[in-house]
């Protein structure tokens, strides 16, 4: 079976010219030189060269066996959340190489968890951390520096109390609030055009900064709000964004964390329910979905979707130090 030319990533104008000139399959172009192709198909020399160059990229797409993938997964760590019950439910924390969505009502702690992860990803490896850097894409101005510095200071104090051997003491010298701040790259995106452009640049940014292990995108829904009157365009853009994020996560072994807000879906008969925003299709986009919600005065986190974890609900709290386990005695008292 021959591969049709229309399956190549070429502009539709060039494809149309090639087809009119009688070239339908890749095999029709074999052994042709650029000048000859340009003459016969009526395309420019550059276009002809681009077509032939596309053909030569005949490298088979990268593949691996599930066994190799298993080994790779074992090497890739997770970013701890400093909330041991959530880490337990996620099998060690927010996994590298996967995309994770956090959604919930305002004030539930989505941004707090993002800030916490941005600090935690920098915990040195000898403390069981990842020792990476972070890119924080902020769409709503939620990156509050004072709060971030507070969380960083708490994490530094926490680790310095844990430091036992020489290696950990040496690591502590470079694990300070200052280094945490300088290893955090904040990108402020005001609208979806800036966001899409930034995503296009990401692969080259990540190639230049190989230590980045976490990409946070806080507030996925806000930049796409101007598109509310053209929902199909929004869905298309988001579909592309999802593919780019997945490619970044798997290609660079980065954990991608996206936050999303809630919206109301009318069920008819005057009933309604809260669902994550951005539509049904977006729900497929990311690998893991974490739902943060209230129950009475308790904050709960539920794994709503994951390829590898059961749907577990755990309790957490947001203290002045950041995203933490609920104090056991306090939890018992609440019950």
């Amino acid at each position: 079976m021959q591969r049709p030319l229309s399956t190549l990533p070429l502009s539709s104008a060039v494809k149309a010219k090639l087809v009119t000139a009688g070239f339908h399959f890749i095999s029709d172009l074999m052994n042709l030189k650029a000048p000859q192709l340009s003459r016969e198909a009526g395309v420019s020399q550059q276009e002809a060269m681009a077509v032939l160059a596309e053909l030569e990229q005949g490298v088979p797409p990268p593949s691996m066996s599930a066994l190799q993938l298993l080994q790779k997964e074992a090497e890739l760590q997770s970013i701890i959340t400093f909330c041991s019950s959530l880490d337990g439910a996620l099998g060690g924390g927010v996994p590298l190489g996967k995309t994770t969505e956090i959604y919930g009502v305002p004030g539930i702690g989505k941004t707090q968890l993002c800030l916490q992860l941005a600090v935690d990803v920098q915990v040195p490896q000898c403390f069981g951390g990842v020792g990476g850097e972070v890119i924080f894409m902020d769409t709503e101005g939620t990156f509050v520096l004072q709060r971030f510095a507070e969380l960083a200071a708490a994490a530094v104090t926490h680790c310095s109390l844990l430091a036992e051997d020489e290696e950990q003491r040496v690591a502590m010298e470079t694990f300070t609030v200052d280094t945490i701040l300088s290893n955090t790259y904040v990108v402020r995106c005001h609208d979806y055009v800036e966001l899409l452009a930034e995503l296009r640049l990401l692969p080259s940014i990540l190639a230049a900064r190989p230590k980045v292990r976490l990409l946070v995108m806080d507030g996925m829904a806000a930049p796409f709000r101007p598109l509310l009157d053209d929902l199909s365009a929004r869905t298309r853009h988001l579909g592309g964004v999802a593919l780019q994020l997945a490619a970044v996560a798997t290609g660079h072994d980065v954990a991608v964390v996206v936050t999303n807000q809630m919206t109301t879906r009318l069920l008819g008969g005057g009933r309604s329910r809260l669902v994550p925003a951005l539509g049904e299709l977006w729900g497929h986009a990311l690998n893991i979905r974490l739902h943060l919600h209230w129950e009475g005065s308790q904050r709960l986190a539920t794994i709503a979707k994951s390829p590898a974890h059961a749907n577990v609900t755990v309790q957490y709290q947001i203290s002045s130090d950041g995203f933490r386990d609920v104090d056991q005695s306090h939890a018992a008292g609440a019950k």
Binding site: A66, L67, L69, L70, K72, E73, A74, G91, G97, K98, T99, A242, L243, A246, A247, A249, T250, H284, A285, L286, N287, P307, A308
Partner: peptide, 14 residues
């Protein structure tokens, strides 16, 4: 197995 969302997890297969 062609995975287009990055969700393939070998640990789950195991």
């Amino acid at each position: 197995y062609v995975d287009t969302s990055g969700g393939m997890t070998a640990a789950r297969l195991l």
